[in-house]
């Protein structure tokens, strides 16, 4: 039998740091939504139904600017298309025999961080682990939004500014340790950073939307790594609780 991780409690534990990180980011979202003129319930409902950082911030801007529904849909599609890639990746990480309903449930919680934690596990994962992993971030994201929407303006600007970096700190904490172990992973991270910088600063290409830029960087950098340094045949047999 293949080894797999399917303990709800382990998922919960792995989700705690993500949830804490989410509180600070969604807190900022809550503040911005209410400052822009949305009622508190709307800010909360967006977070509870979307569970995505970049997409929500972009959607909020469009809403406040009175954009068309089509524009909102298209923007979400572009910015969030990376989740389709992540969803493909998670489909390969799920253990055998996970049914459609569970897949539909797990899909609701595919975010950058949840995907990253699930797919960097060394063994396959089951639905109970995934639900555990999703729970704390989901609560953190919703709660942070609510707190930000209700009380955000009480906090001084200096604190709000400092909290803005939290999510990136988490990203760095995910990519740096494996970059120490593998030169290829290190090369992937650095090249993706350089390429996305080009999409930000180089004229002409900086007109590409940030969502598409991330997709292009992903394809080029992970694609090059897969081509030049494919994994050995046998991978992912052992199971760790890292």
């Amino acid at each position: 039998m293949e080894k797999s991780e399917n303990r709800f409690i382990c998922g919960l534990r792995d989700g705690i740091p993500i949830g804490l990180g989410y509180v600070s980011v969604s807190f900022t979202f809550g503040i911005m939504a209410v400052m822009g003129g949305l009622p508190v319930w709307a800010a909360l409902l967006i977070s509870m139904t979307n569970l995505t950082s970049a997409g929500q911030f972009a959607g909020l801007n469009l809403m406040l600017a009175g954009g068309s529904y089509f524009e909102v849909a298209a923007t979400q599609l572009v910015i969030n298309m990376r989740y389709a890639l992540m969803s493909v990746s998670v489909s390969q990480k799920l253990r055998d025999g996970v049914g459609v309903l569970n897949r539909m449930g797990i899909a609701y919680g595919i975010t950058d961080e949840i995907f990253a934690v699930a797919t960097t596990k060394l063994c396959s994962v089951g639905p109970r682990y995934m639900y555990g992993l999703i729970s704390v971030p989901y609560i953190g994201w919703s709660l942070g939004t609510l707190l930000g929407a209700v009380s955000g303006m009480i906090l001084p600007e200096s604190v709000r500014s400092a909290m803005g970096i939290a999510i990136y700190g988490m990203f760095i904490a995910i990519v740096v340790p494996p970059s120490r172990e593998s030169r290829t992973v290190f090369a992937v991270v650095i090249s993706a950073m350089l390429l996305s910088s080009a999409f930000y600063w180089v004229p002409v290409v900086n007109h590409v939307s940030s969502g598409f830029a991330i997709i292009i960087c992903t394809f080029l950098c992970a694609g090059a790594a897969a081509f030049f340094a494919p994994l050995p045949k046998e991978e992912g047999e052992a199971c760790t609780n890292g």
């Binding site: 890639l85 990253a116 995910i174 992937v188 950073m193 960087c217």
Partner: peptide, 12 residues
């Protein structure tokens, strides 16, 4: 798929 998360997070 193995390298993907590192590329996504680096770019983001």
């Amino acid at each position: 798929l193995y390298y993907m998360p590192y590329a996504v997070l680096g770019a983001m």
